[in-house]
Design a protein around this nucleic acid. Structure first.
Length: 297
DNA sequence: TAGGCCATCTGGTCCT
DNA sequence: AGGACCAGATGGCCTA
């Protein structure tokens, strides 16, 4: 868990540009306590439930109907394409659910509601829950590296990429820590190295090495190759190889986990890095096989 | 047209 | 008892 906390801070520190208003700074004393908490839920932005300016209530539109995808990156067209799927009763029920919070408790009549109404209410809750899950996936997509593809990452790919991204950031931290121990000079003298400015977390190690570290999370990556020496560069190469990578893709990545998804690319020349990727891919492969085993049972 | 991905519904289970 | 969570089923949309 401490790794995740470090990464939350690392990601913050890697950004040179001022954060978005909605972004959370771990150096903020108010947020420091959150990031210091051992409970991951505490790390979530308090603004999360109302993070979408269009729908103040989480996943409920102002009109009370379900907002299928309450996220800035989702076009209105996408929303419109989903809303009609909702059965009319469900929309009505959802509006009731969305507006009922904080209001009077259920009446005896509501308590004795027929099973059909309960089923509809459960459907609405489930819908809302899944929307929350999708929102979380969207948030995750927004912070992990991705190629400039039109197509967004699938849920499965998003989880894979997040896992790889976290592993690479962790490795980056470890590498720089070792450099810090080995080198006699203070890394804090290097303009490209930033130390966690607060005691909000245990991260007192540099979060960026003095070589080829991108200014921020590589939101959009090109498929250009270059110096593969840094961990950050390797991270680029670990990014999905859909349309921009081709030829020697080892196996295709399937969301049902039937094959071993390999994330490394054909132009990966560093044998060591390739070895690492293979190990990671094997690990991912193991993970991806797990659901199949459960299915088979 | 087949396959992938997704949203939704549904019933079961667990938890508070 | 009611809500959260989960997984299976189903149907729609999109793409190769």
């Amino acid at each position: 868990m401490s790794h995740l906390r470090k990464l939350a801070t690392a990601r913050w520190l890697l950004q040179e540009s001022p954060p978005d208003p909605g972004e959370v700074s771990p150096s903020d004393p108010a947020n420091a306590a959150r990031f210091a908490s051992a409970e991951p839920c505490a790390w979530l932005s308090p603004a999360f439930p109302a993070s979408c300016p269009h729908f103040p209530h989480p996943y409920c539109s102002p009109a009370g109907s379900i907002a299928p995808r309450c996220h800035q990156q989702v076009s209105q067209g996408a929303v419109a394409s989903i809303i009609p799927k909702l059965p009319p009763q469900a929309a009505v029920q959802a509006s009731e659910l969305c507006g009922v919070k904080g209001q009077a408790k259920a009446t005896s009549k509501q308590l004795a509601e027929p099973p059909k109404h309960r089923r509809l209410a459960a459907n609405a809750r489930e819908r809302k829950r899944m929307h929350g899950l999708n929102h979380a996936f969207d948030e995750l997509r927004s912070v992990i590296p991705a190629f400039d593809n039109d197509k967004k990452l699938s849920k499965y790919e998003t989880l894979q990429m997040a896992q790889i991204y976290i592993a690479e950031l962790t490795e980056l931290l470890q590498n720089v820590s070792q450099q810090n121990l080995g080198a006699g000079s203070s890394l804090s003298d290097c303009p490209n190295v930033k130390l966690c400015p607060t005691k909000c977390c245990s991260l007192q190690t540099p979060v960026a090495a003095c070589s080829n570290i991108p200014d921020g999370p590589p939101k959009v990556l090109s498929d250009s190759t270059g110096d593969t020496g840094s961990a950050a560069q390797r991270l680029k190469l670990l990014s999905p190889c859909k349309s921009t990578r081709n030829e020697s893709k080892v196996t295709s990545s399937r969301s049902d986990g039937e094959s071993s998804p390999h994330s490394h690319s054909s132009d990966w020349e560093e044998a060591q890095a390739e070895s690492m990727a293979c190990q990671r891919s094997e690990h991912l492969s193991d993970l991806s096989r797990a659901p199949m085993a459960r299915k088979a049972s």
